[in-house]
Design a protein around this nucleic acid. Structure first.
Length: 700
DNA sequence: ATGTTCCTTCTTTTT
DNA sequence: GAAGGAACAT
């Protein structure tokens, strides 16, 4: 954010209509310059959809004269939101950039809920439960109900609660719903859901899906707040619309006023999150439920050579449930054959990929132009080894996230308590971490008090302190208090410290006085973790520097006339601001080592096909293209989503695509013989007669 | 209350 | 083949 005023002036209003539409093709132009109205843009892979979206926003501001603060742009990841904001800033200037809301569904909802907390029955510092905390809470409930956690796992119940919420179904409604004969666990899920809802309210916590559901209910119920949004957001733009679920659709509808317009961009062929509740038929629903929707199709692909696109077109053509059939047409020429590599074993496959990448590097290619894409995370291991052997650096995206590591969650739990003292989930996580002789018995006693008094655990301890110190105190209470006293003093001390200390000092102080630093340092030693990414203690250090960076950004921000922080979530309390941001901004934003920003050196990209969506690479290795893996053996009923996944993988490649498969693969110790994916066999069958095939099959 | 050992699990994961 | 639970022993 170090722009001088002069640059700012140069920036402003530099893009008039000619500049905005320069270089766009006809359908792109139509999308960008269309008069204000509801629009559905169907954008095939690589057809310049982000560019259209950004140009449209620039057009709205500079040509239509819409105020940036009246525009809401919704994306699915924070990364996408930030990117969009940056690009808009470049086109229309930084003032506009900061006034525009560009964020994820969840961030928008969190913002609304924080501002209208009281109207949504929430107390100001409410906690946003991440998946881990949500599961912990469900596990606690199931344990309390003496449920068997073997047949029905807490994580599964948590998942089902989330998907119910995503359909807008509350516990009460669910309990009254028709008992489906197929659902053997109906009673269990229903009773856990009911308790879960009650506890979340008591603990002043909301989970990810609750952010949406609570906001939707608030908007439905409260005319005033809803009208306020209608007056504010005149133009709403939603990216990746094929990935919206039903609550998000509802949210979009509620946010749209009678004189507002919504523009959605999506590609039904790239819908790969159906298993999470995403419903690409929302694109059809949009046409029928929003008035006068103008439809625009983008199918000119700027990314890949035609042979790659032919492969993609052929695969996706087999899907019978497509909303709009589109054929990707490129404009940069035929290109090289797609190479299909038939490998005898998975180690020959990894060997092939390793040596080919070595060759590309020797030819002077940048490693960052190369990607290895796989269906399952566990497939990455072999490639890691082969690349390491050849001294080729790589970055693995995904896998365990920094903010999902146990040590980080512990540290954050301590911090959460300081913002939301009702957060029992956080308290229970760390009340005995590091071990301070508070075992199940003590915890059970504390929880007995808290449920008797209908209060949080910390409140229960406060009550306990009062009674234990009163004159004719019960002996049992006294001993109980003695056991939790050190923990309670610790929390009191941290609370007092927080009042006068900046965020980073507080974090450092917390890590040392709680004993987390020592605890994890000792643990590292015992487990022989010393390398950089491996050390848990080291990760705590990374957390401190992350907090420091954040604090600095926050301070710089407040210096420049109260501008809103780029991530668009600021609250009075810096700690609350930090926590709010990391729970919704954490994943994928940090590198493996916890640093943010560009990787240290040129490296091969490794990731799942899912996480490659929206990205492109000059060279793509699509590996493990076998039956049982792609399509996954677990997705029997839903082959078309797997086919779309293959389609997404193929369309990531710009110049050269390698598809590899192993006839025999070692998985978890035992060898499986599966052979080429049916998708591949379908393609080969189709081109069998033809003498111009877009691919060549080789043996490795 | 805590340390040990066995046993299960092993898609994908924007928030 | 490794990691996280759960059950069991100390």
């Amino acid at each position: 954010m170090e722009y001088s005023n002069d640059e700012n002036l140069l920036d402003e209003g530099n893009f008039d209509r000619e500049v905005i539409i320069k270089g766009l093709n006809d359908s792109q132009k139509e999308a960008v310059t269309s008069p204000l109205q509801n629009m559905l843009i169907v954008a095939g892979a690589g057809t310049g959809k982000t560019r259209v979206l950004v140009s449209r926003i620039a057009w709205l501001i500079n040509v239509e004269g819409i105020y940036p603060r009246n525009i809401l742009a919704v994306t699915f990841t924070n990364k996408a939101a930030n990117e969009m904001r940056e690009r808009i800033g470049q086109m229309v200037g930084n003032t506009a950039k900061t006034q525009l809301w560009a964020s994820t569904f969840h961030s928008v909802c969190l913002r609304l809920l924080r501002s209208y907390a009281q109207y949504a029955d929430l107390k100001p510092g409410f906690t946003v439960l991440d998946t881990d905390a949500q599961t912990a809470l469900v596990r606690r409930i199931m344990k309390d109900k003496n449920m068997d956690t073997k047949d029905l796992k807490p994580s599964e119940v948590a998942c089902r609660i989330s998907s119910l919420k995503e359909k807008g179904i509350r516990a009460l409604e669910f309990s009254k719903s028709m008992r489906s004969r197929t659902d053997v666990f109906f009673d269990e899920v229903s009773s856990v859901y009911t308790a879960y809802e009650r506890l979340c309210n008591q603990e002043n916590s909301v989970d990810f899906s609750e952010l949406l559901l609570r906001t939707v209910e608030l908007l439905e119920r409260n005319d005033e707040i809803r009208n306020l949004q209608h007056r504010r957001f005149k133009e709403i733009l939603i990216d990746e619309f094929q990935d919206t679920n039903s609550i998000q659709f509802k949210f979009a509808k509620l946010m749209t006023g009678p004189d507002s317009h919504v523009l959605v961009v999506g590609d039904d062929d790239q819908s790969i999150y159906g298993w999470r509740g995403a419903d690409y038929t929302n694109m059809e629903r949009f046409i029928s439920e929003f008035p006068n929707v103008k439809q625009i199709l983008l199918s000119l692909n700027y990314r890949s050579y035609q042979k790659i696109l032919d492969m993609a077109n052929t695969i996706i053509n087999d899907n019978t449930d497509r909303l709009m059939k589109k054929v990707l047409k490129g404009n940069i020429g035929e290109g090289e054959d797609v190479e299909i590599i038939n490998c005898a074993t998975n180690s020959l496959e990894t060997e092939f990929v390793g040596s080919t990448i070595r060759m590309l590097k020797d030819q002077g290619e940048k490693l960052s132009d190369i990607a290895i894409l796989y269906r399952n995370n566990y497939l990455s291991l072999g490639f890691e080894q082969k690349l390491t052997q050849r001294n080729i650096p790589f970055i693995i995206y995904g896998g365990q996230k920094f903010f999902e590591r146990a040590e980080i969650l512990d540290a954050l739990a301590y911090l959460r308590i300081l913002v939301n003292e009702d957060d029992d989930t956080a308290v229970l996580r760390i009340i005995n971490v590091p071990a301070r002789k508070i075992g199940p018995k003590v915890v059970a006693d504390l929880r007995a008090i808290s449920s008797e008094r209908h209060c949080s655990i910390l409140k229960a301890i406060a009550l306990l302190e009062f009674y234990a110190n009163s004159e004719n105190a019960d002996k049992a209470l006294k001993t109980l208090y003695k056991k939790v006293e050190p923990f309670y003093s610790l929390i009191k001390e941290l609370k007092a410290f927080k009042k006068n200390a900046p965020l980073s000092k507080l974090t450092q102080h917390m890590l040392s006085v709680t004993g987390l630093n020592d605890f994890y340092q000792a643990k590292d030693e015992k487990e022989g973790r010393s390398s950089e990414g491996n050390s848990r203690f080291g990760n705590l250090g990374v957390l401190v520097s992350n907090v420091k960076d954040f604090e600095e950004a926050l301070n710089n921000q407040s210096l420049s006339e109260g501008e809103v922080l780029e991530n668009a979530l600021t609250f009075d309390d810096p700690l609350l601001t930090y926590l709010s941001n990391i729970t919704l901004v954490s994943t994928g934003e940090l590198n493996e080592d916890g640093s943010n920003g560009a990787p240290v050196c040129d490296a091969v990209n490794m990731m799942t096909i899912h996480s490659s969506k929206g990205l492109e690479f000059k060279y793509v290795f699509l590996v493990g293209f076998e039956s049982g893996i792609l399509p996954s053996s677990r997705s029997e009923g839903n082959c078309s989503e797997e086919r779309r996944l293959a389609y997404v993988g193929i369309t990531r490649a710009k110049k050269q695509l390698y598809i590899t498969y192993a006839r025999a693969r070692n998985i978890f110790g035992n060898t499986q013989i599966s052979g080429a994916s049916q998708f591949l066999r379908d393609i080969v069958r189709k081109y069998n007669e033809s003498d111009s095939k877009p691919y060549i099959i080789r043996k490795a």
